[in-house]
Nucleic acid binder design. Structure first.
Lengths: 229, 229
DNA sequence: ACCCATGAAACTGCATGCACTTTCATCGTG
DNA sequence: CACGATGAAAGTGCATGCAGTTTCATGGGT
């Protein structure tokens, strides 16, 4: 017999893991905005658990940088000022650049074949202006890049940074022409990778992020500007 | 009145913060080795607190990557296989390289003056073979590099990576000739920074870490090889 | 002798309760 | 009317207890 007094919401893993997923989900999807207070009793009530797993989840989210905690004070969804946001985008550009550079020299034939194939397939999506599907593909593309670097730790760092930027990446591919631009930038990266041209892949990836970063300067005021990352 | 039933060990912050510091201290200093089990009741007894703050501390340490947790199983000091260790050193090299490159172009006059002064001062330490003091200086040097990059997020990433490598950096400057080599490598980096030569600073910093990384390949078997980072 | 049940000991997961701190509305005072 | 004291309400910090799980030693069956 598993879980005696467990409600039906039970999906996978421990209660704390569920809470981490649930809360980070609320943050990443924008249901909870930067600056929002996360009080333990409300969250516990909302998810019908006790405060203990909520507290542990908040502690973990704090370590992940998604919320900020101070003693005897409610946890707060991490706010980033313009300067910090800029620093995260810059870090993202550097990290993606490293991944692309390493991927260009290390990807297996199979990985190269796969990323090329998927990239080609994504061309259809931009013709259909399928923003949702393209966004999903975009995530796969970047993930493939991170994995292609064949460096577990760098993959962790870039994934983690990506998660922290997530709250600021809403309204992604809805800018006119962004889909096409994104595809072209991917094309540059993929071509360089297939040529095993590490330097070109690295600088193309840096530019790919840097384009977004430029727009990001004005973003704290107007979140709509955010785009493909 | 503060803290009614608090024991005298109370230093700063909440009990959980103390536990995080205490446990990560045990890990970083090597009192707890990779693979060691961290059972909650023993730790609670050892530090004379209840399991609750211990659990929260372990959760946070898990998020920081210092320990690994699995449901219904004791936390374990993170073990890294040779491949993962290599990936962390490579990441470290890339990150330090970025910091050096950015520092070369962004450090203020005051920061440049300070790092040059401290570097010069460290010369005395290698003449005295003051390993302990040099190790402390070395930490300051690298921290100054991270801060000099003027990028908060990258500073976070590199600091975090450094912490995770800490358990593998014992027996640091005790290799014959390592102090002198380290100083010379620092010299190259400092000189490049003072010239505002970003490319040279970046590649010097990469090389500085890469030297250690090379030795690290054989390290899982023989921890003595680890050196200056 | 070996192997697999079995059950107790040890441990983790979570809920609950109390102590302490912060917050905020209320009231008295200058 | 502004301003600071005050105390209750709400929230966090930690201890404790119980339920469920893992682990390990023991004993019966082959």
């Amino acid at each position: 017999m598993k879980q005696t007094r467990r409600r039906e919401i039970t999906r996978t893993g421990t209660t704390v893991e569920q809470m981490v997923r649930a809360i980070s989900g609320l943050i990443v999807t924008g249901s909870l905005k930067p600056g929002d207070k996360l009080d333990e009793v409300s969250l516990a009530g909302r998810f019908e658990v006790s405060r203990t797993p909520v507290r542990e989840a908040l502690r973990q989210l704090g370590a992940m940088g998604l919320v900020k905690r101070e003693p005897n004070r409610s946890a707060v969804v991490t706010t980033v000022d313009e300067s910090h946001l800029n620093s995260m985008f810059e870090a993202m550009a550097e990290l993606e650049s490293i991944c692309a550079r390493l991927a260009a020299s290390r990807m297996t034939a199979e990985e190269r074949r796969s990323i090329e194939f998927e990239h080609r397939a994504s061309h259809r999506l931009i013709q259909d202006s399928a923003e949702e599907d393209y966004a999903a593909y975009n995530t796969r593309f970047h993930t493939a890049l991170y994995l292609g670097a064949h460096n577990e730790h760098i993959c962790d760092l870039v994934t983690q940074t990506r998660a922290r930027l997530a709250p600021f990446r809403r309204a992604q591919f809805h800018l006119p022409g962004r889909l096409v631009r994104s595809f072209e930038e991917h094309e540059t990266i993929v071509t360089a990778i297939l040529r095993a041209d590490a330097a070109a892949a690295g600088s193309a990836a840096y530019a790919h992020v840097a384009i977004v970063r430029t727009a990001a300067a004005s973003v704290v005021a107007n979140p709509q500007v955010f785009a493909d990352l």
